[in-house]
Design a protein around this nucleic acid. Structure first.
Lengths: 137, 137
DNA sequence: CATAGTTTTAGACTACTTCTAATTTTTAAT
DNA sequence: ATTAAAAATTAGAAGTAGTCTAAAACTATG
């Protein structure tokens, strides 16, 4: 169990356990946007006896403690995103792959004109096709 | 079976049936963003013997034929939205209610700067609190 | 090392959606 | 009208994703 990750969890107010560290090791480091079951599949490779419930519990705990964000796609799949800072999303309509877009890449104006709505956060969701000079799709 | 709705379906390439017209009558007219089961509940009032599978099939067909849009909330619920023209969404974090924001209410800039991504569509998703001089939340 | 609190576990359960395959309805051709 | 083919509908089974439960296993501390 790597001490750095354990400390990271402790700093977030989470008691580290072997299972939680195993989940954190994958999900906080990946740039994918995995579903809970994909996390379970990955983590089981290094920790074969971990249960599904624990993975779900752990992911929900991480979201509550703000180590992760949850993002629900238009097809209903719930994915997790280790990037907690503000950003937008690009969804490739062919592959389903989700890309993070830097916050500064887009600008939204006229938000102040939304009378009757108190804005807490927002993001732009862009759909289309990623051209494949990023090899990971 | 109202001829206008039947024609609307035919124009979209959908063979009208009594069931489809009953679903269309409600879901294409409402400003709510109902779930599939909410549509089923409503439609059964005028068409008590309609089956769940037909409602689901019909809604999916309408989405495919672009009479409806599907929108998945962050809590995982799938809702349908009869407003096919472009618009943004405001989600009230307390009530879960979704409001359509007019397309012109917000402006997104710098989309052209997304190198490597071919943009087909986009929308802004805003979260916060709706102040209640709209009485319907 | 006892105990209280926390975490994990397997599997049951729930909610939502799709699938299946049999039946009914519609369409189109005679 | 009759028929055959195609399309739509149906009830219920099956699949999926996620939560819950209650027992067992841990961990931290005195």
């Amino acid at each position: 169990m790597r001490p750095l990750i354990a400390d990271h969890l402790r700093n977030a107010g989470i008691q580290p356990s072997a299972q939680r560290v195993a989940v954190a090791e994958y999900v906080l480091a990946t740039e994918d946007h995995p579903t809970a079951d994909q996390v379970w599949a990955k983590v089981r490779k290094s920790f074969p006896m971990i249960s599904r419930a624990t993975v779900y519990n752990t992911l929900n705990l991480f979201v509550k403690k703000r180590l992760l964000r949850q993002f629900v796609l238009n097809d209903g799949k719930t994915v997790f995103d280790a990037r907690v800072s503000r950003h937008h999303h690009f969804i490739d309509e062919e592959t389903g792959r989700i890309y993070d877009l830097p916050w500064e890449a887009l600008a939204v104006s006229k938000l102040e004109s939304l009378n009757g709505f108190e804005v807490r956060e927002y993001q732009v969701v862009v759909r289309g096709r990623a051209k494949n000079y990023s090899r990971r799709g």
